[in-house]
Design a protein around this nucleic acid. Structure first.
Lengths: 336, 336
DNA sequence: TTGAAAGCGCTAACAA
DNA sequence: TTGTTAGCGCTTTCAA
């Protein structure tokens, strides 16, 4: 059997209270008792039970992470950041892929509560904001990551999508593009909407009119992007550039361009968003708006942990600036 | 405060034992009592504490998943499969990215034990097999996934790497290639070694001599593959085809080919291994040996769960056959 | 500086 | 069919 606190106590000839104290570095314990106990713990390969300790009102040192899909590169990179920073602080993370379905979100949240996780990081789309409000009501630490629910008082870490859209547009406009297509996620996806809004606003600010039929929205997958890009590229007035609201869609655009024999970037420029591994590996590598995923994950974990320590903290919302990574998918418009 | 079993019992005017019984569907409980209690649980939004129940000798319904890196597409796809199947069976999974460092492996394993996970799926490289043996000694359910330690009696799910290598070679040879380069992971990585062994054996079987300097080994990253491919492509006798032992390396080969102006597949054929999203998205899409990741994840979870149910089960080792997915990165050798 | 004892929320004999 | 009770391994007063 595994050694328990009783085994240690007996072996050391002290009470379990004493062992508990040296374990947690609490109370006053003589140096020698402490040393002796440590030695015994070592010898017996004692592993304190997080379960038992959690039952006694302490923490489980476990976080829940809700994401749409761990196999989506953007989220797996975020997950890695969260895991790493969590691990440094002593937390492990349970992954929950929701496919953006409220029903799965609810199932997972219920499960996480039964497991008494110390906090939940939500990086998945949720239609029904009550789900989050209920969590808040139970004062379970929550942070929204790469998601936004402005009306709910909840800690949030996001990238400035609007600015990202602006930067994308400026870049393309600076390269001489005037007729530009946009491929984004469905209207209900706020981040995508904001990116588009920033993009369009910037075009307007430059006195360029945006043609409504140059805007396509769809799901977030590669094939969706390809399909919509094909529509754009096969229309009467094809754009000289396309802004895709994430890397997956951009890869789809790349495939579409190839399918219709358009060279990127010479005949078609593409700006993407996210800067996942895909944008590096694409051919050509994609100019993209980098989300500081590592930093975002770290911040999210910190917010949870801080809330755990100083209970009733003021809610905060941190907005990070995306950075334009210029790679090889954008070029001056060809004058031919 | 959250409702406990006591609250339910009090509200229902019964003992906690009765509530516990209806909760677990054990013992004989009258239909009406049961219904009444269920109603109250519903009304009070009762969530039984997994923690408390785990402390009483039951399971935590949590699995640990050790992988090198959750942000590596191969492992994130595996992770998704495990999560999905686990969820169906009532288990959640804690992710542990180890970077293939034994030290991190040990830290994580210790943590997982403190959290009393019901089982551990190991899909990460481990140099010191004692680490696994210690787990086994404590009779913690373990399964090795996409890893092999033939000398250790442990449940295992792998793909037949040797056969995969054979299939890759046959395909290329069938297309007329004779001078073929191989880029694999470092010698200590067993799966890669086996793939290479199968590949070379098949070449020999066809009476083709393999030149030692056509074999390059390195780390598993894209840039490593690119570097090694460049070496091959810039040597005196450049190969007409390259077998890369995983998708990341193959993407590197693709980049190298582009760098030296070789067209794929016409001037250079590439066979890859894994069939992650990368092989679909690459340009051109890669011919690759598909690992049935979903199936592998599912099997691994099942093995753990079965071991949990019927304690002292016979260890088993399941070998899955990889399947050649022919895409656009391979072609008949050009006769020019 | 140390220990006794109560309790965290639940399960599982054993009794009734 | 239901209830009593003794833990599970730990933390935390409160006493000693």
């Amino acid at each position: 059997m595994k050694a328990t606190i009783y085994d240690i106590a007996k072996e050391a000839g002290v009470s379990i209270a004493t062992v508990s104290k040296v374990l947690n570095g609490k109370g006053k314990i003589s140096a020698e008792t402490s040393k002796a106990i440590h030695a015994i713990m070592e010898r017996l390969d004692y592993q304190p039970s997080v379960i038992a300790s959690a039952l006694t009102g302490k923490k489980t040192y476990t976080l829940g992470l809700l994401i749409p899909d761990i196999s989506n590169p953007f989220f797996s990179e975020i997950a890695r950041a969260i895991e790493d920073h969590g691990e440094q602080l002593g937390y492990s993370v349970i992954m929950c892929s929701t496919d953006n379905k409220d029903e799965k979100v609810e199932r997972y949240i219920s499960l996480l509560q039964q497991k008494k996780v110390d906090g939940i990081i939500i990086a998945t789309g949720i239609d029904n904001k009550e789900i989050v409000e209920q969590l808040l009501a139970k004062s379970i630490p929550v942070v929204l990551l790469a998601r936004d629910m402005p009306l709910v008082a909840v800690n949030t870490v996001v990238v400035d999508d609007y600015v990202g859209g602006c930067l994308a547009a400026s870049h393309l406009i600076g390269l001489g593009h005037r007729r530009i297509g946009i491929i984004g996620e469905k209207e209900k996806v706020r981040s995508s909407r904001e990116r588009i809004r920033g993009f369009r606003q910037t075009m307007e600010d430059h006195g360029i009119t945006f043609h409504e039929n140059c805007l396509k929205t769809c799901d977030y997958k590669v094939e969706d992007g390809k399909k919509k890009a094909l529509e754009l590229l096969q229309s009467d007035e094809t754009p000289s550039a396309i802004f895709a609201c994430n890397d997956m869609l951009a890869v789809g655009v790349l495939q579409a361009a190839k399918a219709v024999g358009k060279k990127v970037p010479n005949e078609l420029s593409i700006v993407s968003f996210d800067n996942t591994i895909l944008s590096e590996l694409a051919d050509p590598p994609l100019t993209t708006l980098a989300q500081p995923m590592e930093h975002m994950g770290k911040l999210a974990v910190n917010m949870i942990v801080e809330e755990l320590q100083s209970s009733n903290q003021v809610k905060q919302r941190t907005v990070l600036r995306p950075e334009l990574m210029i790679r090889d998918s954008t070029a001056l418009i060809s004058t031919s």
